[in-house]
Design a protein around this nucleic acid. Structure first.
Lengths: 205, 205
DNA sequence: GGGTTTCGAAACTTTGACGTATCGAAAACG
DNA sequence: CGTTTTCGATACGTCAAAGTTTCGAAACCC
């Protein structure tokens, strides 16, 4: 952060910080978070080993484990793609498809796991994750749903909170169940099917 | 188990096993599981302390931590209440209300957390939890949904897997989001509202 | 080449939980 | 009362990981 973007200003003399090592550390941290369920079972030595780096190098730049995790997660904030569909339904399918892909990727999933499981253990960390990764998406979904209400595509008495929970919760739960059952194959068009079930409802017309 | 239900048969002489201690150990185990995210951070010493019990007493009766966890979780398998509603909608509300209540209780939530998070780390344990707590409910929900299809209350082309994910996932996700937002109050009739949104769908008719 | 800083590797101390052993007290029996 | 077994408490050695320190090599500047 201080070494890369400066071409001439105040190089402090001495061997510069290794960008390769820093990247490797962040990558290893993300990998290992994705493979674990809590931060307590994430060991600095494991990170150092996977990154091919001395422990010293990690402790030199991050005083606490939590700081390292914060920096690592900060590189993950993948925003939702632009939603420029003609109908709300198309944009919802786009979103659900993103959620589906992320539910498969342990690395992306860990963002949520941390924000939810370690909420009261690391409030600072959870807050930061929430504001960086959760809130923007909630805002996008809220705007999208309200657009649908405005155009008449969605029912006028829509409960936005319930609707968001239905969209995200359904795909998350579906993927969770699938990945544990022995015959775990996901239909290709699962995002579309989920959205259509949520939009049209389970009841007969 | 051997001491309580026998009035006269083969008391082995000596001080009998303390029922109070066993119950306290199980209770403390459940409490601590509910407060933790993985089994590895569940320490025997913490259980002994919370239960007001010597470590010896735990090691005497459970050789491995996993055995203790299995016994503790075995006391939690609360089955779904009987579903005798006139309409499928009523029974769905009953189920969702159960899920909602359990989503508030860390102790009940830990059953799912273990089954999901520690699936490949403790396959034996995860299987046991799944067959004791997850599968029966899935079967009940499947039967309920198929009943709805048969009566015409639900659409004929219902995707049961998606429907189950929508019912459970929505309430789980909703409660998760609520409990983390600062103004976390749940509407009294949330189960009914969720079921009605899921049944009728988000789209306008 | 000299000065400075970081690098990776290894040794070290500390911490916390594990699992075992020991001890006196307590609770049942005859 | 004596025997037997469990109780809770405590102490012990083991072990894994934390976090610190040391060391020689490497990478930059002048």
């Amino acid at each position: 952060m201080t070494t890369t973007d400066e071409t001439q200003a105040a190089r402090p003399a001495g061997r510069p910080r290794s960008v390769r090592a820093e990247k490797a550390i962040i990558e290893a941290t993300l990998d290992l978070i994705g493979e674990s369920t809590s931060l307590s079972e994430l060991s600095i030595e494991a990170i150092a080993n996977r990154a091919g780096v001395g422990k010293t190098t990690i402790y030199r730049w991050w005083s606490a484990k939590e700081d390292l995790v914060v920096d690592a997660l900060a590189t993950l904030k993948a925003p939702l793609p632009p939603l420029a569909g003609r109908f709300v339904r198309e944009d919802l399918i786009t979103c659900v498809e993103v959620f589906r892909r992320e539910a498969c990727d342990g690395r992306a999933r860990c963002v949520l796991n941390i924000a939810m499981n370690e909420a009261e253990r690391h409030p600072r960390l959870a807050d930061r994750v929430r504001q960086a990764a959760i809130e923007p998406r909630r805002a996008v979904l809220t705007a999208l749903l309200e657009r649908g209400v405005a155009t008449g595509e969605l029912r006028a008495d829509l409960d936005v909170s319930v609707a968001i929970a239905a969209l995200i919760g359904t795909v998350v739960w579906y993927m969770r169940c699938i990945e544990q059952s022995p015959d775990g194959d996901v239909p290709e068009d699962i995002a579309e099917r989920i959205v259509d079930h949520i939009l049209a409802g389970l009841a007969s017309r």
